[in-house]
């Protein structure tokens, strides 16, 4: 039985499949007229965000509300925490308010891990530093499975700032566990050394080398401030080298799908015709995010009993 979702690293392949299977049930709920089930009525979720976020926070909030949870959002600028209340005091306060699940985002890696040991409430990592963003990887996998019908054996190209991307990290761990091939494509300054030693990982520095044969192309968001860090000379050159446009997409498999965790830098890492094109599944990712997060909340609140029982599916259906 699991208390927290801190990262993909702590999950087994069976755990991951179990979340995806559970999410399938909730996707059905979201397609109904009344997109709400009473499953977690009376439970309380707090979104504790130390970093600004619109999408992830909203996705968690909707997931909680669709499960009839009471949801509170707390945004804390990191700077004020440093000066005042300690992280541990903050989380204990949330628990004292009756939070059953606390969803945490923080700019420093390991904060969810630090806090999980101090409270009985379940902790869900909604992104910590450069470490992990597990629910994003889960929704990415869910979306890939939806379009490809399978996961094992697929080749996924992840393009861009891998070094500073928790999304890439969680996907690398998840895809490695599920027998997928991960091609990390980016400038050597943005690919951490040693990453090629992780299961399933191959490293390329050009799109021309990395894209051929890819079933999925996932573009990462590039942060403009990396330019000041000397990681690349200009956004212009970065776009020249790593933008996904229709010419480059043609190098991947003809049925390759295009993904992006958002928000998009159009014209920098992705061209508009590709982002809005028929092979883009970017909006599916957004929709699936709610279903996957519902599954995570449901499993943590109900007790994460080992993998893949059909009983849970039935229970879901009846509660709906």
């Amino acid at each position: 039985m699991k208390k927290d979702l801190l990262g993909i690293r702590e999950l087994s392949a069976e755990d991951i499949q179990h979340v995806l299977d559970t999410a399938s049930g909730f996707k059905g709920v979201l397609e109904r007229d009344i997109k709400k089930v009473p499953t977690l009525r009376g439970k309380t979720m707090v979104n504790l965000f130390f970093e600004p976020s619109t999408r992830t926070r909203m996705s968690f909030e909707l997931a909680g509300k669709r499960l009839s949870m009471d949801v509170a959002n707390v945004s804390v600028p990191s700077s004020s925490v440093v000066k005042g209340e300690s992280l541990l005091d903050t989380i204990r306060t949330m628990e004292a308010y009756g939070a059953d699940i606390v969803v945490i985002r923080h700019a420093s890696s390991g904060v969810p891990h630090l806090l999980s040991g101090s409270v009985a409430a379940s902790i869900v990592n909604a992104g910590d530093g450069f470490n992990e963003h597990p629910t994003q990887a889960l929704l990415d996998l869910f979306t890939i499975r939806q379009h490809k019908g399978r996961l094992e054996g697929l080749t996924v190209a992840i393009v861009g700032d891998v070094a500073h991307s928790r999304v890439a990290k969680s996907n690398v761990y998840a895809m490695g566990k599920l027998g997928m091939t991960i091609r990390l494509i980016g400038p050597p300054t943005l690919i951490p050394s040693g990453v090629e030693s992780l299961p399933g990982v191959e490293v390329y520095h050009t799109m021309e080398e990395g894209l051929p044969g890819a079933d999925v192309v996932m573009q990462l968001r590039i942060q403009k401030e990396r330019q000041e860090g000397g990681f690349f000379p200009s956004i212009h050159e970065y776009a020249d080298l790593y933008i996904l446009n229709s010419r480059r997409l043609a190098m991947a498999r003809p049925d390759a799908i295009v993904m992006h965790p958002g928000p998009l830098n159009r014209g920098v890492e992705i061209s508009s015709d590709v982002a809005d094109g028929e092979r883009s599944v970017i909006l599916d990712q957004v929709q699936n995010g709610v279903a996957v997060r519902m599954a995570v909340l449901y499993l943590l609140a109900g007790g994460w009993v080992s993998s893949g029982t059909s009983g849970q599916q039935e229970e879901l259906a009846s509660s709906a």
Binding site: R9, S109, G110, D128, G129, F130, N131, E132, R166, K169, P192, S193, G194, V195, S197, L198
Partner: peptide, 8 residues
């Protein structure tokens, strides 16, 4: 690689 795995 340990730093990569910890995201530090």
């Amino acid at each position: 690689i340990t730093a990569v795995q910890l995201g530090l």
